[in-house]
């Protein structure tokens, strides 16, 4: 695609992010990754603790 081909072209027109914008975007991405990891951990913990001892009581 044309958009991908000229990604490293210094004469490329359109948005070119500044260092500060790149830094903040990276920080946002890291925060989203952390939030997703926390969500995974929360769902895991809630599942385990909601089941609790009931796992042993299930009908076999």
């Amino acid at each position: 695609m044309a958009g991908d081909d000229d990604r490293n072209d210094p004469n490329r027109k359109g948005l070119v992010l500044t260092e500060e914008q790149l830094r903040r975007r990276k920080a946002r991405n890291v925060a989203i990754a952390v939030a997703l990891a926390v969500l995974v951990a929360l769902f895991y913990l809630v599942t385990v603790f909601k089941m609790g001892g009931n796992v042993a009581n299930r009908q076999l």
């Binding site: 948005l15 992010l17 500060e20 914008q21 903040r24 975007r25 946002r28």
Partner: peptide, 12 residues
């Protein structure tokens, strides 16, 4: 591209 709101400057 010029009509876009511009790159976000928002920090965490």
């Amino acid at each position: 591209v010029a009509a876009l709101p511009g790159p976000s400057l928002a920090g965490v």
